[in-house]
């Protein structure tokens, strides 16, 4: 079946099996920033943004994404031109193994697009679907706070 989406600002048509998950489709099509950590929607490593909301692409059938707007980590910034959030995550030591990082950064992006000056509770809620086993979350929380500061003063 055809899946028509706007992904990272580009209109694309992908072919998918009826039972295929969005994560499998994305990785197959080269969007490798979405990672597979559990396949049950519990870890958030596969998170992508659909219509402005953070979702687990492992829990979504490709067919569900048809007609929608998707954003993956690949659209946020690059190594040479990183987004403020990406740079701040590195500066604050919020990246260890980096496997959860794309999901964490997308979660932060969704939050900061909506809330310029989020409270600690809002930050924690926004990142509650993303598990990290390396950092203990302390530096991740700092990175979100610092990103918000920097984005406000831009």
């Amino acid at each position: 079946m055809d899946i028509k989406v706007t992904i990272n600002g580009v209109k694309k048509v992908f072919n998918a099996d009826p039972g295929e998950k969005l994560l499998d489709l994305l990785r197959r099509e080269g969007y490798k920033g979405a990672k597979r950590g559990c396949s049950t929607g519990d870890c958030g490593s596969c998170a992508v943004i659909i219509n402005g909301k953070l979702v687990n692409s492992c829990l979504i059938f490709a067919g569900q994404a048809d007609g929608h707007t998707l954003t993956t980590i690949e659209a946020i910034g690059t190594v040479n031109e990183p987004h403020i959030i990406q740079r701040t995550f590195v500066e604050e030591g919020a990246v260890q193994c980096g496997f959860c990082t794309p999901g964490m950064i997308l979660a932060t992006k969704v939050l900061l697009d909506k809330e310029k000056d989020p409270t600690l509770t809002q930050i924690r809620e926004a990142l509650s679907g993303n598990l990290c086993r390396c950092t203990g979350y302390v530096k991740i929380e700092n990175a979100v706070i610092r990103s918000a500061d920097k984005m406000r003063s831009e």
Partner: peptide, 12 residues
């Protein structure tokens, strides 16, 4: 800065 940090943060 972590030498592979930006690459990881960019999903690369």
């Amino acid at each position: 800065l972590k030498v592979d940090g930006l690459s990881l943060a960019a999903g690369k």
